[in-house]
């Protein structure tokens, strides 16, 4: 398994966060976490990448524990969690240059900037970039090490239609051509339907169900319908409707 998430729990005030979330992702899979805002997706993504420490549970990446063996666990991981974390006072090129020190075998910086469409502005300060350009910069920072596991939290947030399509194609290409395993979260069902091979539905901090996308599309008109069905079923199970 590339990623094993075992029963992780992290709660904030008013019981927000994530509760007893477990799932695993095999090599080459594109796993989507679908849920509304505040459903706990970002908390899970942060725990997976070691940005947050779970109160309970464990995360293993390529067999290495994210807390006890961070260095080895993150060696082949790329991540874009919430807003991109690029350094504003550095240029796009400098941002990638200082990060490239961490990887013995990483992508060429110009090649990477070309891939995300920022080559022409490579010497411009990131603080002057638009939201969409910053998001592209975040993607570049995430894939610089040719990751075997890519963790993307709402990667198309703030992007225009063209940017959204570009990013979606980029992720699909990485998964198909380089066999990159992807964990992606979104509140947009249509977006995940186009990219994912497996999907997990999150609601109120819980992972309600995980299912193979082919099965979902064979049995439901769309991923959106599957999501609504799963959420209603869960609410009925808890004793309240809608």
């Amino acid at each position: 398994m590339v990623l094993e998430v075992d029963n992780i729990t992290k709660l904030y005030k008013k019981n927000r966060g994530a509760m007893n979330v477990s799932f695993s992702i095999g090599e080459g899979e594109v796993f989507g976490l679908l849920g509304p805002n505040g459903s706990g997706k970002t908390t899970v993504m942060k725990i997976v990448t070691g940005l947050l420490r779970a109160k309970e549970g464990r995360v293993k990446i390529f067999g290495y524990d994210i807390v006890d063996d961070t260095q080895r666990a993150l060696a082949d991981v790329g991540g874009l969690i919430e807003a991109p974390a690029s350094i504003g006072f550095l240029s796009a090129y400098e941002n990638l240059k200082i990060v490239s020190n961490f990887y013995p075998d990483c992508m060429g910086i110009d090649e990477l900037l070309d891939m995300v469409g920022l080559l022409k502005v490579k010497n411009d300060k990131v603080s002057k970039f638009s939201l969409g350009m910053k998001q592209r910069m975040g993607i570049a920072l995430a894939v610089i090490n040719k990751p075997k596991l890519l963790v993307l939290d709402e990667p198309t947030n703030g992007l225009d239609i063209e940017g959204t399509v570009d990013i979606r194609n980029m992720i699909s290409n990485l998964a198909k051509e380089q066999k990159t395993t992807v964990l992606i979260s979104s509140h947009l069902a249509a977006e995940l339907q186009q990219m994912c091979s497996k999907v997990g539905v999150m609601q109120d901090g819980r992972l309600l169900e995980t299912e193979v996308m082919d099965f979902v599309l064979e049995n439901y008109p769309s991923l959106e319908d599957y999501f609504l069905h799963t959420v209603r079923k869960s609410r009925e199970g808890l004793g309240y409707a809608n």
Partner: peptide, 11 residues
């Protein structure tokens, strides 16, 4: 939140 940039690296 730029600390994320280094927290996501293998260190």
């Amino acid at each position: 939140n730029t600390i994320k940039n280094i927290f996501l690296r293998p260190a």
